[in-house]
C-alpha cells in the first residue's frame, strides 16, 4: 500500500500543529529571500607560503559561499594579501551599506595572538586588535550579526564581542590556545560539502556549519592521537535561523520568482516535517513512519518541481 497525501491535505492536517519551528523557519527563509546580507572576509598574514596559500584558499571559498546569499557579489568584500590591512578593514566596516545591512557577516582567517591587554590579528602593517574590532562592530546596526574569528587565540574575543543578536564563533576556547588552527579549513570545507548541509535543504545554517567544522576538527586530533590544541566555541543558541550560504539548486536559482513560490510551499512541508518529527515518541514508531512516508513523498515530488524550475542537474 502506498501512502500519498496531497500538499493541500497535508497542510490542513498539520495546520494545527505549526509551531515555533515553523515560525522560525519562515523567518529564516524570508530572511534569505528578502534580507540584505553584507559582510567582509579577511585572509590575514600567513607568515609562510604554506599558510599564505591556505588563508587565501579558505577566504575564497568562504566569500563564494556567502555571495550565494545575494545576487550582488559586491555585497561581500574579500580582503587578502596586501589589501588585508587594518585601515582597509576598518574602512569597510564603516561603510554605510555595511552598517545598515539586515544580516552582517565578518570572517577573519589567519594568525591571532593575545595577552592580558587584548587580542591582535596579524596583518600587513599594523595589526588589528580587539579594541579596534569592538569599536567598529558597535557601529554596525544590523539586527543579526555573525562574527567568525577562525584564528589562533581567537577565544579571547568571545567575551569581548558577544552581544545579543551577534553570533560569535571562535576557533579556540581562549587566548591561550596559540597554535595555528585547523578549524577554518573545515569551515571552508563545509561550504563545499553536501554532508555539512545535514538536512539537504540546500540552506547551510550557522548551526550546520558549526557542527560540521567543530566535529571535523575534533575528529582530526582524535585520529592523529594529538593533544587538541584548539577547542572551537560559539556563543549563540539561535543558530538554526542564521543561513550562511545557499547550495546546489538554490544557489543556482538566485531570485527566480517561480522558484521562490515553490520554496514557500517547500517551507510549509518542511515545517510539517519538523512538527511530525517532534511527535515521534508520542506517536510510536509504526504510526510515525506511516505518517512520515506520505509527507516525504510530497516533499520529494515538490523537490522535483523545484529542480525542473531551476534546471538543476545532479553534478
Amino acid at each position: 500500500m502506498v501512502f500519498t497525501a496531497s500538499l493541500e491535505t497535508l497542510v490542513k492536517i498539520n495546520s494545527t500543529i505549526f509551531s515555533l519551528s515553523l515560525l522560525s523557519l519562515l523567518f529564516a527563509v524570508s530572511e534569505v529571500a528578502l534580507a540584505k546580507s553584507m559582510g567582509i572576509v579577511v585572509s590575514g598574514l600567513g607568515g609562510s607560503a604554506q599558510y599564505e596559500e591556505q588563508f587565501v584558499e579558505q577566504g575564497q571559498t568562504i566569500v563564494d559561499g556567502l555571495r550565494s546569499l545575494e545576487n550582488d557579489a559586491s555585497a561581500f568584500t574579500w580582503l587578502s594579501a596586501n589589501d588585508a590591512t587594518k585601515e582597509n578593514i576598518l574602512a569597510e566596516l564603516s561603510k554605510p551599506a555595511v552598517k545598515n545591512a539586515d544580516v552582517f557577516f565578518l570572517v577573519l582567517l589567519g594568525h591571532g595572538v593575545s595577552n592580558a591587554e587584548g587580542w591582535w590579528f596579524n596583518l600587513s602593517g599594523p595589526d588589528l586588535n580587539s579594541n579596534d574590532l569592538v569599536t567598529a562592530l558597535n557601529q554596525i546596526t544590523a539586527p543579526k550579526q555573525v562574527v567568525v574569528a577562525a584564528t589562533s587565540a581567537s577565544g579571547a574575543l568571545l567575551p569581548v564581542l558577544s552581544q545579543p543578536g551577534r553570533a560569535v564563533v571562535t576557533a579556540t576556547k581562549s587566548g591561550g590556545e596559540i597554535n595555528a588552527v585547523r578549524f577554518p579549513q573545515y569551515v571552508a570545507e563545509a561550504l563545499l560539502s553536501a554532508n555539512a548541509d545535514a538536512d539537504r535543504n540546500e540552506l547551510l545554517t550557522l548551526a550546520e556549519l558549526w557542527r560540521y567544522a567543530n566535529s571535523k576538527t575534533q575528529e582530526y586530533y582524535k585520529k592523529e592521537k594529538l593533544l587538541a590544541s584548539e577547542h572551537a566555541r560559539i556563543n549563540s543558541a539561535n543558530l538554526e535561523s542564521l543561513v550562511i550560504a545557499k547550495m546546489g539548486a538554490l544557489k543556482a536559482a538566485k531570485d527566480n520568482p517561480e522558484v521562490a513560490e515553490l520554496l514557500d510551499q517547500r517551507l510549509q512541508l518542511e515545517a510539517a516535517f519538523l512538527s511530525l518529527k517532534a511527535k515521534k515518541t508520542a506517536l510510536g514508531i509504526t504510526r510515525f513512519y506511516e505518517q512520515l512516508e506520505p509527507l516525504l513523498i510530497d516533499i520529494a515530488v515538490l523537490q522535483q518541481k523545484i529542480d525542473a524550475a531551476t534546471g538543476w542537474v545532479e553534478p
Binding site: 545535514a198 538536512d199 539537504r200 518542511e270 518529527k277 516525504l296 523537490q303 529542480d307 545532479e314
Partner: peptide, 13 residues
Amino acid sequence: ENAPFYRQAQRLL
C-alpha cells in the same frame, strides 16, 4: 528522516 531534502534518497523513495 535525517535529511528530508536528500535528492537521491527522495528519488529512491
